[in-house]
């Protein structure tokens, strides 16, 4: 029996009963909660008078996801709902109204919902990458730095080239996008994206890069070994890199998690050298979420079995489980 510890667990917050998604900001001091009823909650930890807990009706439909923008754009949130609407919200305060969250802008409504979206703060300006339920990636961009009201669609492309099956026949249930973390404080226009779809071709996780020379987004790698069948992607996360000679991306598909090693720069054919560094198969249920720590050395994964597992590489490059956070249902009713 492994050692069991409960003293290290600190309850922070009991959630409203219809929360669908939560997101911490980059300094882990604010938590945004998206809910089924369309209400958005923002909560501060540790609680402070300067940032009171607040909530407002953000959408008419259930909110799917909420994400924070990089902190140099203020306290800025983006939300997407099941009806396809995407909104940006920011916290401001004035002498008269005090602190309040206001709608910065709404993106044109899509026919299909946005499954995942992320901010990327590139040199050319703030970007939002969205992965639509129709399998299309859209990249919006703004040149402004303070107002952020005007966005333009910079690019739109499907997550697969030379599609054999008809695109209309594909259903996408979820998607995951992860930017390559900044290198030397500069955010390069490179991100990884994976879908969970009915089409194998669509499902493979891919790396996209904006090629300055051609002024368009190009796929520079697929995260799979040549002999393998593509697997649906539930979540993926690009590890922070503070001096490693290679990049690491963790991809959750089904019950397993793969850690891929990428070696920049691109080879002569404009492709990345990609190798699988590990395949972690200890979860009993589908792996739904994962996140790297600040050093990019420890990966936390969570499965539908309610268990969180922690992984690290040892000296010989083997990835091993180092910790488990189990969840246990209380027998008594509170």
């Amino acid at each position: 029996m492994a050692s069991n510890s409960t003293s290290s667990i600190l309850p922070l917050l009991t959630l409203p009963d219809d929360v669908t998604h939560t997101a911490w900001n980059s300094s882990s001091s604010r938590l945004a909660l998206a809910s089924h009823s369309g209400t958005l909650h923002v909560w501060a930890y540790p609680p402070s008078v300067h940032s009171p807990a607040t909530s407002w009706q953000a959408h008419d439909a259930p909110i799917l996801k909420v994400v924070w923008a990089p902190p140099e754009f203020g306290h800025l949130l983006a939300t997407c709902a099941t009806d396809g609407s995407v909104s940006l919200w920011e916290e401001i305060s004035s002498k008269d109204a005090g602190i309040e969250w206001r709608l910065v802008c709404q993106f044109p409504e899509n026919q299909t919902p946005v499954l995942d979206f992320v901010f990327g703060s590139c040199l050319s300006g703030l970007k939002i990458v969205t992965a639509g339920g129709d399998g299309h990636i859209k990249i919006y961009e703004t040149a402004s730095t303070l107002e952020l009201r005007k966005w333009q669609l910079q690019a739109e492309f499907p997550n697969v080239a030379n599609l054999k099956e008809g695109i209309a026949r594909i259903t996408c249930t979820s998607a995951s996008i992860s930017w390559r973390p900044p290198v030397d404080s500069v955010q390069r226009p490179v991100f990884a994206l994976g879908y969970c779809t009915s089409s194998q071709q669509f499902s493979t996780a891919k790396i996209w890069e904006f090629a300055e020379a051609y002024q368009r987004w190009q796929m520079i790698a697929e995260l799979r070994e040549s002999h393998e069948k593509p697997e649906p992607v539930h979540h993926m996360s690009w590890a922070p890199n503070v001096g490693r000679p290679f990049e690491l991306i963790a991809v959750a598909s089904g019950k397993s998690v793969s850690i891929w090693r990428l070696e920049f720069p691109l080879d002569s054919q404009g492709r990345l050298v990609v190798t699988r560094a590990a395949r972690l198969i200890d979860h009993n249920g589908e792996v739904s979420h994962l996140d790297w720590d600040m050093t990019g050395m420890t990966l936390a994964t969570s499965g539908s079995d309610g268990t969180v597992r922690l992984w690290q590489s040892n000296f010989s490059g083997q990835w091993q489980q180092q910790g488990i956070v189990k969840s246990v249902k209380d027998s008594y009713k509170r």
Binding site: A2, G306, L310, K329, R334
Partner: peptide, 16 residues
């Protein structure tokens, strides 16, 4: 590995 345990009161296994 070290094991931590979190108690919850949800009807089914939670999403984490």
């Amino acid at each position: 590995p070290v094991v931590h345990t979190v108690h919850h009161s949800m009807a089914s296994t939670p999403r984490v």
